[in-house]
Amino acid sequence: MFVRTTYATGDPAKLDQAVQALTGEGREQLTKEPGYRGAGLFVDREVGKLLTGTWWQDEEALRASADRMGELRARVLSGFAATMTVDNWEAAVVSRPESVGEDARFRLTRLEFAPTDADALVDAFENGVLPKLRTMRGFLGGTLFLDRTAGRGTVGAVYADRDSLAASRGPVAGVRGEAASKARATVRSVEEFEVVMIDARPPS
C-alpha cells in the first residue's frame, strides 16, 4: 500500500475546527475515493500540530486522488494551517490496529538513510524493532513508511493510552538506537500525538 501524509501547524485555538472538518467532510469524501484503504488523524493540541495519513491500495490510486485530495485539504485546513507539508510514502511494513480507545497515543520518528540502505532498514524494523514493540504494554500497532529515492522514512507506533506511551519511552529509546545503528539510519526527530481517529480497512 501507499500513504499520503499531511503535517500542518497553526494556532492551537483553531485546531478543533480543523479536526471537525477532517472527521466530517474530509472523511466523507475519502470514503468515496477509489482505492481508499483507511486513514489516521493525530494532533498535538498544546503546540498546534496536526498529522494525517491516508492509505491507498496502490500507487495508481494514490496519484489518481491527488488533485481531489489537494482541493479538499486546502478547504478543510484553511482556517487552521499556517504551514503545511504533504508527502507520499510506500508503506513498507504495516501492522495497523483495528481500533483504538479514546486515550490512544501515537509516536512518530523521522529517519534519513542512504537509498541503498532501504532494504536494511526494512529488515531492521520488521525483524528487530516490531517484534520488540509487540512485547511492550499497550502497544497496538506500528508502521514503517519509506521514500526510497529521497532516503527518508518514518516509523509510527500506536499505544493504548497516555501511560503506556510514557512507559515505553525508555525501552523504545534503546530499540531505536540499536536499529538506527544496524540500518545506518539517522534519526531526525521524535514526536508524540493524541490519536483522534484511526480507520483501518483491509486491502481489496
Rank of each mutant, 00 (worst) to 15 (best):
W89Y: 12
V129K: 00
G128Y: 05
T85K: 13
W89R: 08
E112P: 00
L111G: 05
E102P: 04
E126C: 00
P115F: 05
M84V: 07
G128R: 03
F125S: 04
G101S: 06
R105Q: 14
A120G: 13
A91L: 15
G128M: 04
N127M: 09
R107D: 04
V86P: 03
A114Q: 14
P131E: 12
A124C: 02
L133W: 02
D123V: 04
D87E: 15
P131Q: 11
A82E: 15
F125P: 00
L111A: 04
T83N: 13
R137H: 12
A81Q: 07
D123K: 11
R105P: 01
L130M: 12
L108D: 11
L140R: 15
K132F: 01
G138N: 11
L108Y: 05
S95T: 05
D123R: 10
N127H: 15
S95V: 02
F139W: 15
A81C: 07
W89K: 06
V93S: 08
A81N: 07
A91G: 08
R137K: 14
P115D: 11
D87H: 08
R105A: 05
T109R: 10
A81H: 04
L130E: 14
R137E: 15
R107H: 03
F139Y: 15
D103W: 01
R134Y: 00
V94N: 05
D117I: 00
N127V: 01
R107L: 08
D87R: 14
A82L: 09
S99V: 06
T83S: 14
G101N: 07
E90S: 12
L133G: 11
L133Y: 04
T109G: 06
T116N: 06
A82D: 14
R105E: 06
E90M: 09
V100S: 09
R107W: 04
E112T: 13
A81E: 11
P131S: 09
R96N: 09
A92E: 11
T116R: 12
A91N: 10
D103E: 15
A114E: 14
E112C: 02
F139G: 09
L130F: 03
L140P: 10
T135E: 15
T83W: 00
S99I: 01
E102R: 08
A118G: 02
V100I: 13
L140I: 03
P115W: 08
M84F: 02
L108I: 02
P97M: 05
M84S: 14
T109S: 14
F139T: 09
N127Y: 13
F80G: 06
D117S: 09
T109C: 02
D117V: 00
A120Y: 01
A81P: 06
G101K: 06
R110I: 01
V129D: 12
E90T: 09
G128H: 03
L133C: 05
R110G: 07
R96H: 04
R134T: 10
V122H: 02
P97W: 05
T116F: 01
T83Y: 00
N88C: 04
T135V: 04
D119H: 00
M84A: 12
V86C: 03
A124T: 05
T135H: 03
D103S: 13
V86R: 12
N88G: 09
G101L: 07
T135W: 02
S99P: 02
P131W: 08
D119T: 05
E98K: 10
N127I: 00
D103F: 05
A81L: 03
M136Y: 01
V129S: 11
T109D: 12
